[in-house]
Design a protein around this nucleic acid. Sequence first.
RNA 1: GGGGAGAUACCAGAGCGGUCAAAUGGGGCAGACUGUAAAUCUGUUGGCGCAGCCUUCGGAGGUUCGAAUCCUCCUCUCCCCA
Length: 425
Amino acid sequence: MNFVEELRWRGMIHDIMPGTEEHLLKETTSAYVGIDPTADSLHIGHLVSIMMLKHFQLCGHIPIALVGGATGMIGDPSGKSEERVLLAEDTLRHNQECIKKQLLRFLDFDSRINPAIMVNNYDWMKDFSFLSFLREVGKHLTVNYMMAKDSVQKRLETGLSFTEFTYQLVQGYDFLHLYEHHHCRLQMGGSDQWGNIVTGTELIRRKTGGTAYALTCPLITKADGGKFGKTEEGNVWLDPARTSPYRFYQFWLNCTDEDAAKYIKIFSLYTKEETDAMLAEHQAAPHLRVLQKALAKDITVRVHSEQDHQQAVSASEILFGKGTEEALKSLPEAMLLSVFEGVPQCDVSRDLITAGIPLIDFLSEITEIFPSKGEARRMLKDGGILLNKQKVSDENLLISAAHLLIGRYILVQKGKKNYYLVTAK
RNA sequence: GGGGAGAUACCAGAGCGGUCAAAUGGGGCAGACUGUAAAUCUGUUGGCGCAGCCUUCGGAGGUUCGAAUCCUCCUCUCCCCA
């Protein structure tokens, strides 16, 4: 399978250095992408580069995941308007461990032919003395060359520290190191990494006379111009403790048609034929949202599990399907709990409920679903509040035992998509 | 070191003694229409015991019956000169 060809139809190539494709066809090579260990979990923004590695491995090459223990301590100025906060070493170490576990779900580290490799640039940078660095790396590139980088230019107005300015050399040296020790000939990354990657290939050329390649993918955007991978709650994480499988699944299911068509090529492994078929099917009957479902399934199963996907689907069906109050009431407790596993929950004292709680107090002070009573009232006025799937409009309504499902639960909806499960304790 | 401009709600940005909880745009949230889509339209966007009250316009004081608006000091940002 032709790696470049594969990425090309998936729309995952933004820029590619001439000769890359030919080189990859000629011999088995290794390529790397860098991952900043700024948190103890990856989020879906990382997924693009990970999918590039995945395809790379599927095409018979060797993928290298480089955890930026060293570079993470410096901070990449690319795409940042301000100087970055530096991370402490032990935090970085912890994050690296967690990230590695997540990578295992994507890459095959045990293959006998082309096992994936994980490295940490801290290991070769930590004992690199300043003087050696200047002599071995700094000597080969001019300040003029470094200044010309877009990432540097953009920061000239507001200023950037020497540390950040040097970042590209450190990243460049990573490439050189992998070139020499792991037969790495290619670095991939987001399009904002182009400048840094090219510094690496340049360094390799000047220092060893060898040739290395670069390939970047477009930054993922949303059709409405918003930031990809962000929701109201923030990042969409791979760690189920940070983003529940249900929410994770919902994120993908909720994509607009336009985005789904783009994402399915990038984030799933469906073949070109399968994808084309789904695109056609979707065009014919868009309301079935074949694309969103297929996308959500593929990626939820890969990141979490088949079972998590099943649960997310059944939860979604109950929450968004034709589910009525009757259907909800007839749900067995175990089912109800599993459906709402990924939904925010809170407990309320049973005595309070038996005594009766004014609706507004219940929504704000008691459950903290709303940060203020005013907001709860507003939403109520807009008709955005549902109890057990029933729209409520009476501000003076008293929440009482009569509202409890199976004698224990109350399902509160804020708008169409936000659910809260309240349990009487 | 010298001179100038500025700091307003999530962001941008009006207001320059009372009618200002603060124009307008963007964003957010919700409603209608739909397909948990897009587009469009509508509402809403400091708190509360909500025809009223309380806390907000970089910070601290002051003038005034009354300050986002005037004065003093402080902090920070930007621009020009050295």
